[in-house]
């Protein structure tokens, strides 16, 4: 569904990704694993169009989207939840969702459907998003992304920096979502990623160093590759 070929990208003069090739299937979870600084977030930012690649091509559903701006990729069926539970801090939770729902066909219905997936958000809608807890903001972020009814969801370390009591809940939600939408997951914690993923890539210093299919059998291989 999403095919990345020979992707080279970076910031300023420094190159972070050195020719990445990744293919994300039309269903299930594809995970990219790697240490801090391996280039995982950069990869996702390039995939969604927030970072212009220097070289390489990105295609979605067979269409070349390498030069497409981010908002058009979203319209084409991609969605992205950035790391760090980002939100619009001075807008209310509801307004955060409306930003995405505005001007969209059946925006209101999609918004309600997203809220039904995260009922914990309903009593918080009038509150400023910046005042919510990390876990609440992450739920808000995923709900926001789902409003566009994406076919591919890009998740950047969805459980990082979230209180442990909520982590399991969010992991369950993601596993559940994987039945409906293809997920491209970036993680540095192996446990959940390998449990969720059908396919994985290991990223080290901006290069794919190994790849395989998920499940417990591959866990040792990945652990060895990442030497943790």
């Amino acid at each position: 569904m999403l095919t990345i070929e020979g992707l080279q990208a970076g910031y300023g003069r420094s190159i972070v990704l050195h020719g990445i090739g990744i293919s994300v299937g039309a269903a299930g979870v594809t995970a990219v694993l790697g240490h801090n600084g391996a280039g995982k977030s950069t990869l996702l930012r390039a995939a969604i169009g927030l970072l212009k690649p220097r070289q390489g091509t990105i295609s979605f559903d067979g269409e070349d989207i390498t030069r497409m701006p981010a908002h058009q990729r979203v319209a084409a069926g991609m969605a992205y939840v950035p790391q760090g539970q980002q939100c619009f801090p001075h807008l209310t939770a509801l307004e955060n969702l409306q930003i995405t729902a505005d001007g969209r066909k059946q925006g209101k219905e999609s918004l309600d459907a997203a809220l039904d997936l995260f009922p914990a958000l309903k009593p918080l809608l009038r509150r400023r998003a910046g005042l919510l807890s990390g876990g609440q903001r992450q739920q808000l972020g995923i709900a926001r992304a789902l409003i566009t009814r994406p076919r591919l969801l890009l998740l950047d370390e969805p459980t990082e920096g979230i209180q442990p009591s909520v982590v399991a809940e969010i992991e369950e939600k993601i596993l559940d979502l994987a039945n409906h939408v293809a997920i491209f997951l970036v993680e540095q914690h192996l446990g959940f990623a390998l449990r969720a993923a059908q396919n994985y890539y290991v990223l080290e210093s901006g290069r794919v160093t190994s790849t395989g299919s998920g499940g417990e059998s591959s866990a040792d291989l990945v652990r060895a590759a990442l030497s943790v």
């Binding site: 701006p69 969605a79 950035p82 001075h90 807008l91 409306q98 505005d102 992304a145 566009t148």
Partner: peptide, 25 residues
């Protein structure tokens, strides 16, 4: 208004606005 909301969203987090489908340009 909804365009006012979009302006505020872009001010607060430009990248997030873009990936929320807002045509930032």
């Amino acid at each position: 208004t909804s365009f006012g909301r979009r302006i505020r969203a872009v001010v607060q987090n430009r990248d997030l606005a873009a990936v929320s489908g807002v045509p930032t340009a």
